[in-house]
Structure formats: structure tokens, C-alpha cells
Amino acid sequence: MNPLATKIARWIESQGPISVAQYMNLCQFDAEGGSYTARQTIGRDFITSPEVSQTFGEMLGLWVAQTWYDQGRPANPRLIEMGPGRGTLMADALRAITAAAPEFLAVAEIVLVEASPALMTMQREKLKLTSADIAWHERFDDALTDRPLYLIANEFFDCLPVHQYVKTERGWCERMVGNKDGALTFALNPDPVPNSATLLPPSRGTAKDGAVYEVSPAALALAEEIGRAVAKQGGGALIMDYGYDSAGFGDTLQAVANGKPADVLNEPGDSDLSAHVDFLALARAAAAGGAAVYGPTTQCNFLADLGIGERGERLIKSNPTDARDIAIAIDRLVNPAEMGALFKALVLVAQGAPKPPGFGFG
């Protein structure tokens, strides 16, 4: 067991089993062993869309610029990226915005919301050559909601902690992390959830024993907060992630270390944990905050409508020796058998705002 596993095991011995959400939070944000707060490695072990092709970040940058134009170019906009990873997406987005809408950058404040000191260092290095003035915040809060915001959250919500509930003959019981013979292990709370009707989807009654349902209160609260800010101040929010767009059940919690699947309970803090995003739940939360919601739609449809195919053709024309690599990378983003269907896009704008880019298909 690594030091964080030992710490968690001792905590369980003294306080009792912890929820999956508590476990995820410790794995990510423990001051001494968390993957985001203490680990000095390259950051997320997942290969994210911006790392696949520069066209991904460029398309999102153009989405920001076009949304701003369509809304009448509101004054004092703020461009925010949640969990910007290595800074690749923002670098590509800024390059595209600089070419297409330099007047946006002339008036916009740019903020990166990042909790990892190690990743902040990487982002500063990645973005040091940009002429834009960039600020960093550790969290999204009221200080960022006082002006029109254009927010991008790519593969951010999948990292937020989830609670897991398992259907048993006695009802829905929360999955916990316990300590058995010195090793971390999954267990079920012996008492069923008393208010399952408020936690679980309407189809819960048809679930078979052993079915797993995941819910992320942190994700829902954040989606509602962003929706409220957009509804009040204007702008738009683009959420892209892997997940599902229909009510369903399943254990999607996963760990990745060194680019390979890992045991969720093994070496906590040394791997990246995530779970599929419930896009319908996010949409309901954002709507409760007052925002108009578009989607979810597939990443394939969204990027195609933004013009990723045409951008790829121009990129290939400018770099003919790299034509095959460029085509393969873009295909990975949009092919339904690759990332095109599993990844979704959800957009929030103010009520009455123009229809945002990315939804002109069909």
C-alpha cells in the first residue's frame, strides 16, 4: 500500500467505511498524496481530445468567438476554462480566436480554473508565448460570475466525485470503501437509502438486483451554478465529456495509470479516477439555474457542424507530408466507433439568446 492508501485505511479503521465520492475526493485532493494536489507528474493519464488533434481546441475557440458575435459582442467578456490540463486546448483556442476575432481578445479576461499546482506550472509554460493576459483561480465561484462568461469545460465533469448505489433485495444501498485485512475493498452500506426516490431515476423500480446507479451532487451543483451565471450575465458554457444521454445504470468508475487501466482501489493518488457524465442530469440542473440548454449531442455532430472537416482539409493542404496523421487524428475525434459517439456536447446560454453554434445539423 502506498502512503495515501495507508492513510485512508487508518481513517476507515477509526471512522468506518467511506463513500465512493469521499474516496475519489481523497484520491484527487489529499494534501499529501492527491493526484491533483501533490503529484508532480505530467498530470492526467488520459489522452484527452486536445492532445489528439490541434483542430479540437481550434474548433472550441471558434465556437467562443462565433457565440460572442452572435450575441452582439457583449462588453467585458470573460473566457474561462475549467480544468485546463496541460494548457493545450487553451493554446489552440487562443490561436484560432486571434486569427478569427482579435477584437474579442482585446476586451476579454481569460481565466484558467485549476486546482493542481503542478498543472498550473505546465499551463504557464505552454501559454507563455501568448499575448493574452491570463489569470488562474483554484475554483469556480462568485468572483467569476460578474460579467458575460464564455466557459469551456472539456473532460472536467468526469473527474468530479460520484456516489454509487447498488440495487439489492432490501433496496438501494450505497457502495462504500472499507478496509478488510489491511486492504481497501468495496462494501455495501447495510441500510438502504431512505430517500431513494429523490436520488435515483424514475426507472429505478425496474432495475434488477446488482444494478449500479451513479450520481454526482458536486457536478449537479456546479452545472446549476454555471447555468445561473449564464442566465444572469449572458455568454455561454460548453461542456464536453464522455458519458451517456439517456437514463441508465452501470458502474463506470475507472482508474488509469501510465495510460493503462488500473485497479480503482490500488495505489490511490497514483492514478486518475473518473466516471461517465450523466448529461441529462447536468441539463436538468443547468435549466434549474435558469439557463437555456442545447443538447446533449454527440461530439461527432457538434464538431462536424463547427467545420472540423473543412479545417482538417486546410491543415492537410498546408502540411501535405502530415496528411495521414492529421486525417487519422480527426477521424479519432469524430468517428462514432472512436470518440465521436461516446463523447457528448452540452451548451448553456441565456434565455432568449441566439441558437449557439454546433447545433445546425439535422
Rank of each mutant, 00 (worst) to 15 (best):
A5W: 01
A9F: 06
P17H: 10
S19A: 09
N25V: 06
L26G: 01
L26H: 08
F29Y: 15
E32S: 00
T37C: 00
T37N: 02
A38V: 09
A38T: 09
G43T: 10
T48Q: 05
T48S: 03
P50Y: 12
T55Y: 13
V64W: 14
Y69Q: 11
G72D: 15
P77I: 05
L79Q: 05
E81F: 01
E81V: 01
M82V: 04
M82W: 14
R86W: 13
M90E: 05
M90R: 04
L94A: 07
T98Y: 14
P102L: 12
E103L: 08
E103T: 10
V107H: 07
V111H: 10
V111I: 14
L119F: 13
T121G: 00
M122G: 00
D146W: 09
E155A: 03
F157V: 01
P161L: 08
H163K: 09
Q164H: 12
Y165W: 15
K167M: 06
E174Q: 13
V177M: 10
G178W: 12
D181K: 06
G182F: 14
T185V: 11
F186H: 13
F186S: 02
N189Y: 05
P194E: 15
L199S: 01
L199P: 01
R204D: 13
R204K: 10
A207K: 07
K208V: 07
G210A: 10
G210Q: 13
A211F: 11
P217C: 03
A221G: 01
L222T: 12
E225F: 14
G227F: 13
Q233T: 08
G236P: 00
M240Q: 08
G243S: 01
Y244A: 03
F249P: 01
G250N: 08
D251G: 01
A262R: 09
L265R: 03
D272Q: 09
D272K: 06
S274T: 14
A275F: 14
L282K: 01
L282N: 05
R284K: 07
A285C: 07
A287G: 04
A291S: 02
A291H: 01
G295R: 03
T297V: 14
T298C: 00
E313I: 08
R314D: 10
R314S: 03
I330H: 09
L333A: 02
E338P: 00
E338L: 01
A345K: 04
V349G: 00
V349Y: 04
A350K: 11
A353Y: 07
P357Q: 03
F359H: 06
F359D: 06
